[in-house]
Nucleic acid binder design. Structure first.
Length: 499
RNA sequence: GGCCCGGUGGUGCAGUGGUUAGCACGGUGGCCUUUCAAGCCGCAAACACGGGUUCAAUUCCCGUCCGGGCUACCA
């Protein structure tokens, strides 16, 4: 039955930090794939490292996914609540001699402490700890416990030495698998060390828990960052030892900072939540992220989510690391601020107005139709949601001020107070309040006074919205209404004089 | 250090054993225009380098360089 073959994928973050853009992109690819294939997406929290795990961060990760609009069909599952499964898997491996007990002190049998290269430290992850004393070379010295006799093992058990469980990697041969992105892969088993499955505290390591869970949850496609590519052979070995068929692996390229090094804090905002706070539209962020390491082919890059889902395929995933390009992200945001229907945008603008306390009791909240017209008028000039409450503030509240640069640019002319006072009078006398009437009244005044219409237009704009950059004047006047325009014109006079 | 992956304008992606090497962002010039955007039109800008293989390499192979990943009782 093919309905039984529907793909099952998962996003499996570890709560050691917030949801960062790399994780978000991985989640997005899984989600797009699942939706495209009509499959199932699960969420699994990989919290088996009690040292680094911060339970309180889980909510933030979920919030980030929700903001992005990535919904999961199952979960979240917590590995910390599934420990018996891993224990059982370890027991089976021990029983079949595919694993063995190790009594070494952590890392004591290898060459030495961290012999990592300078570049490896950069991620700024944890404390550098060990100093540059240790040997620069580190060989994969096999763990001596691999060959312990039953008697020796029993002796150690009697002594109560803590033990970890390690996988017994086959002596020779090669391990192969096919990666949907990187193609056929082949690794000499001799290159793989006897990795730890179960720590001495009884908790599983990533290698064990990820495989045990992916088997148990019937995951068909493992779509994850390419940083996991090198460890995949270990997992393939585990699948075999556990008698399970491995899933299809698809490793997606990493996201780098502008300097082509791993994206990190010093490259600026890397958490999804910071983009939410900044006033980006989730769909814009999704569109941007989708194109990092994936190409739909074709010329257009502005792809609504439904199109992304339609077009997504693992075949289009690139093997080259991608650089996070902030300017392009902003471009996408302006696209999503301007192209979709106003109705789609309204909820976001409403939320933004509420966020800064400009919603309650406003015309925007009282008159939905007016609100829609105002947003439609303002949005062509916005780049962020926050623009609605910053430069477009005067559309929603009388409490605004005059931008200094605007005053200097358009309030130079000495006659302005006099002219604007006359304009206020003329406008107040208008029987009908519409674009053409306002336009005619202003131009008539300009003609009569012998000044260019532009002078009045620009000065008036600053007077009624406080900004040099704003929507076309007469449309703005119509939205604001006669009373407000006249009042604001009069209110501005003293400020112009005192310029 | 060892093992592995990658390398097309500044950036994200297309693409091909023979192409005027395509699109988008950004940059730049112009049009439009009451401001500023948007929009439209144009311009500059790339196959990392060195060897091969081949009639022909951006494309296939090797090396170098550069970048990245893994090499944890982290994920």
């Amino acid at each position: 039955m093919d309905h039984a073959q529907k793909p099952r994928v998962r996003f499996a973050p570890s709560p050691t930090g917030y949801l960062h853009v790399g994780g978000a992109r991985t989640a997005l690819f899984n989600w797009l794939f699942a939706r495209h294939e009509g499959g199932t997406m699960l969420l699994r929290i990989e919290d088996t490292d009690t040292e680094r795990n911060r339970p309180e961060l889980v909510e933030g990760i979920l919030a980030g996914l929700r903001w992005l609009g990535i919904e999961w069909d199952e979960g979240p599952y917590f590995q910390s609540q599934r420990l018996p499964l891993y224990q059982a898997a370890a027991d089976r491996l021990l029983a079949s001699d595919a694993a063995f007990s190790c009594y070494c002190k952590p890392a004591s049998y290898t060459g030495e402490g961290p012999a990592m290269k300078a570049a490896g430290e950069e991620a700024g992850k944890q404390e550098g700890e060990g100093d540059d004393e240790g040997p620069k070379t580190k060989r994969n010295i096999p763990c001596p416990c691999r060959h312990l006799s039953p008697a020796e093992r029993a002796a150690r058990e009697r002594e109560g030495i803590p033990r970890a469980i390690r996988f017994r990697v086959p002596e020779g041969g090669v391990t192969r698998f096919e990666d949907a992105v990187f193609g056929p892969r082949e690794v000499q088993n001799a290159e793989i060390e006897d990795f730890v499955l179960l720590r001495s505290n009884g908790l599983p390591t990533y290698q064990l828990s990820v495989v045990a869970d992916d088997i148990d949850m019937r995951i068909t496609h493992v779509i994850r960052g390419a940083d996991h590519l090198s460890n995949t052979p270990k997992q393939v070995l585990l699948y075999a030892a556990l008698g399970a068929e491995p899933p299809i692996f698809a490793h997606v390229p990493l996201i780098l900072g502008p300097d082509r090094t791993r994206l990190s804090k010093r490259h600026g905002a890397t958490s999804v939540s910071s983009y939410a706070e900044e006033g980006l539209l989730p769909e814009a962020f999704r569109n941007f992220l989708a194109l990092l390491g994936w190409s739909p082919g074709g010329d257009s890059e502005y792809l609504r989510t439904r199109e992304l889902i339609e077009k997504f395929s693992l075949a289009g995933v690139s093997r080259t690391n991608a650089v996070f390009d902030r300017p392009k992200l902003e471009w996408f945001n302006t696209q999503y601020l301007q192209k979709p229907s106003v109705e789609e945008l309204l909820p976001y603008v409403e939320a933004e107005l509420k966020r800064v306390g400009m919603w309650e009791g406003s015309q925007a909240s009282a008159e939905p139709a007016w609100f829609a017209r105002a947003v439609d008028l303002i949005r062509p000039r916005t780049r962020f949601l926050s623009d609605f409450t910053t430069w477009a503030r005067a559309f929603f509240t009388d409490d605004f001020d005059y931008e200094q640069a605007a005053r200097e640019k358009f309030w130079k002319e000495d006659r302005l107070p006099e002219l604007l006072a006359k304009l206020a009078e003329a406008l107040a006398a208008l029987p009908d309040w519409n674009h053409d009437a306002c336009d005619a009244a202003l131009r008539a005044l300009a003609g009569a006074e012998g000044v260019k219409a532009g002078l009045l237009i620009n000065a008036t704009r600053v007077a009624i919205v406080g900004r040099a950059v704003a929507p076309p004047l007469f449309e703005t006047m119509v939205i604001l209404g006669k009373d407000r325009v006249v009042a604001r014109l009069k209110r501005a006079l003293p400020s112009i004089t005192s310029r």
